[in-house]
Design a protein around this nucleic acid. Structure first.
Lengths: 198, 198
DNA sequence: GTCTATACTGAGATAGAC
DNA sequence: GTCTATCTCAGTATAGAC
């Protein structure tokens, strides 16, 4: 859709644009020949910069895939903070995830292209898990700020994130129902499963 | 308890023993000067072998810390399979974790020495998360083998693992009560938290 | 066991944006 | 002029190929 191609050598030096070009180049190359067969120099070359510039934008080859996390984290923690006082931890998290649905849907095109690469690459899976762990830590803080005691806050944040992940997985497998529906379904499954305890 | 010390230069070439020496050397060096300031050659030298031998035993510098996972995985999956038929997923997992307590306690001395290094090293945290994800995958399979439907099996395995992790954390912070007690407490917290849904 | 590719790091020079 | 993005060059260490 954009009209800029790499026919001109004088590419703009704007930082953000270079960053986007690097991300797109990395995705293309990872898809074409796989993550391990792609060097940082390859990515940089396709984006029209040097290898060193790649590493100034991204601390390592994995990071180029996991940028959007900060945005999602801010949205989720903000949503948790905005939930009516007195709401219990897991319902608060469920509400926050519902608020994140538009953001998730907006990022879906890129996410879907990245998914098969991540699934095929252990190094990227590890980074993905680390990013999710970062989200859980942020949610734990957000719950604590609401007055949830420490050990419970961490457990709820983690369990809430798992439930969200389960909903995302089911949504990917069944695009017939929307993400809101899958979220409610997953949280309900959690309730029923936990009810069997004791 | 063993009588072998490193006073003799002619160290035994037995594979398992070399492996243990490498693990101990890595732990010492990571503690002394930090993970990134420690090279694979450093570790190998202290263990009395070549760098090449280090990479024969461990695929990378991280792996040297996460060996026991296979043993725990086999114990947990076996325990899940052995739970009486008809037991619901989360109670089955809780029972399995109770069975793993002796193994956890046996590994505690080493685990405790490694903990601060992992906490201070992102690369090791990532690997730790990946190993836990491997356990969750194995538990998901074990639940499916018991007839638990796919989407629920994955959710329960993940949530069960989180609850176990929460119990371990509380145990580390409060050694006054034993791990069995903390496990039951954490699973009870999960039940109560999930009950607030709907 | 040897050799090599490549992921990363650091310092200093250069070039646009303002 | 400042400031920041990029380049150039030189280096170390991991991990994999042989």
């Amino acid at each position: 859709m954009t009209d800029d191609c790499d026919s001109v050598r004088a590419v703009p030096r704007n930082g953000d644009e270079v960053r986007l070009r690097l991300q797109e180049a990395a995705l293309e190359l990872y898809l074409e020949r796989g993550y391990d067969k792609t060097t940082a120099a390859d990515i940089a070359a396709r984006a029209g910069v040097t290898e060193r510039t790649f590493f100034r934008h991204f601390t390592d080859k994995r990071e180029v895939f996991f940028d959007g996390e900060a945005e999602l984290r801010d949205l989720l923690t903000g949503a948790v903070a905005a939930v009516p006082a007195g709401t219990r931890p897991l319902p608060a998290l469920r509400a926050a995830f519902h608020q994140a649905v538009p953001l998730i849907e907006r990022h879906l095109p890129v996410t879907e292209r990245r998914a098969p690469v991540i699934a095929a690459t252990p190094a990227l899976q590890e980074r993905s898990l680390a990013k999710t762990a970062g989200l859980v830590a942020a949610l734990t803080d957000a719950l604590r700020a609401r007055g949830v005691a420490e050990p419970l806050a961490a457990l709820c944040a983690q369990v809430g994130m798992d439930t969200y992940s389960a909903a995302i997985r089911r949504w990917a497998a069944d695009r017939g129902d929307d993400l809101h529906t899958h979220l409610d379904r997953a949280f309900n499954d959690l309730r029923l499963a936990a009810n069997a305890l004791k």
